[in-house]
């Protein structure tokens, strides 16, 4: 009896979590895979016999759908501009924090981290106010130096940049901490040896700091890239994808198809396209890192 009990103990500890993960992470993948090949929508939800298998039609249709293609294009713009900005800015902040006294470093670390723990809806509401064309603080500050008002959220291209600026502001914290931890783990004697050899600062940065941090940088780039490919809340709360779908992202497109138009099959198909893009982007990163190592 006792023997039997002790065999079951580990399962008692892991099973609640494993079962919930199974229901809410693995089962959905299977369901998603099945329904992305069907025309499931609201009437299909009420009556399963209404659902029919349509093969690759959803995927074919997606690549003829202007909104989808536009969302995909926007997502690439977010990634191409946002990822380098986010990685470089958090790296520079970490580098500066390493140089100053302890209490300065601690204080500013908290300040720069704060946006990452605050609610995205609240942040989007505040930034919408700051970006307001007539009453916003940004345009007022610009008017003080005789600049014309900028349509921060009203012009499709500028709106993308405005969302990127806000997202970079919000996302710096975690990457900054990772970079800082990596910087602090570089042994000081490397720099002392370089000093003896008469290396200048630029040489120390490119020959010691950057190479020693290659794993941290890789980790930050991969996670940042995955995060930006899933860009969702910022356009959802601030612009609802507008103007003219100029800020719509793939993630937002999936949400709209699934929950505003109840086109579950079509939305699920779009989510698989996003999934494949994420996998490809991650594999590409791993491949680049490998060739760097060689």
């Amino acid at each position: 009896m006792n023997r039997f009990k002790s065999n079951l103990t580990p399962y008692f500890f892991i099973m609640p979590a494993v079962i919930l993960l199974g229901i809410f992470s693995f089962l959905p993948i299977l369901v998603s895979l099945v329904i992305s090949f069907t025309d499931m929508n609201l009437s299909g939800l009420a009556n399963w016999s209404q659902i029919s298998f349509i093969g690759f039609d959803n995927f074919v249709q997606l690549f003829q759908d202007d909104v989808f293609l536009k969302s995909m294009g926007n997502t690439f713009i977010y990634v191409i501009i946002g990822v380098p900005l986010a990685v470089i800015s958090s790296f520079v902040i970490a580098l500066l924090l390493k140089l100053v006294s302890d209490w300065m470093s601690t204080t500013f670390r908290v300040i720069y981290y704060v946006p990452s723990v605050t609610n995205i809806v609240a942040i989007a509401v505040v930034w919408s106010f700051l970006y307001n064309q007539e009453y916003g603080l940004f345009n007022y500050l610009l008017s003080l130096v005789n600049f014309d008002a900028i349509p921060w959220l009203e012009d499709p291209f500028i709106a993308k940049l405005s969302l990127i600026a806000m997202a970079v502001w919000k996302s710096n914290g975690v990457s900054m901490l990772i970079f800082l931890a990596a910087l602090q783990s570089i042994p000081n004697m490397y720099y002392e040896a370089a000093d003896i050899d008469g290396a200048n600062r630029w040489q120390k940065l490119t020959k010691i700091t950057l190479p020693s941090m290659s794993f941290a940088t890789f980790f930050v780039v991969v996670t940042t890239l995955i995060g930006w490919l899933q860009f969702f809340e910022e356009p959802f709360v601030m612009t609802e994808g507008g103007p003219l779908n100029g800020t719509n992202s793939l993630a937002l497109f999936i949400y709209q198809e699934g929950f505003q138009y109840s086109e579950f099959g079509y939305g699920a198909a779009a989510s698989f396209v996003l999934f494949i893009i994420i996998i490809l982007a991650t594999l590409l990163q791993f491949k680049l890192r490998k060739s760097e190592d060689n």
Partner: peptide
């Protein structure tokens, strides 16, 4: 044990947008 743990880790790779619609259907 290794298999169960690998299963747990694998779920970290699945983006929220992929599970969003099917999870809603399951809850429904």
């Amino acid at each position: 044990k290794e298999i169960w743990f690998a299963v747990v880790l694998l779920t970290m790779m699945i983006p929220g947008q992929v599970t969003m619609i099917p999870t809603y259907l399951i809850l429904n």
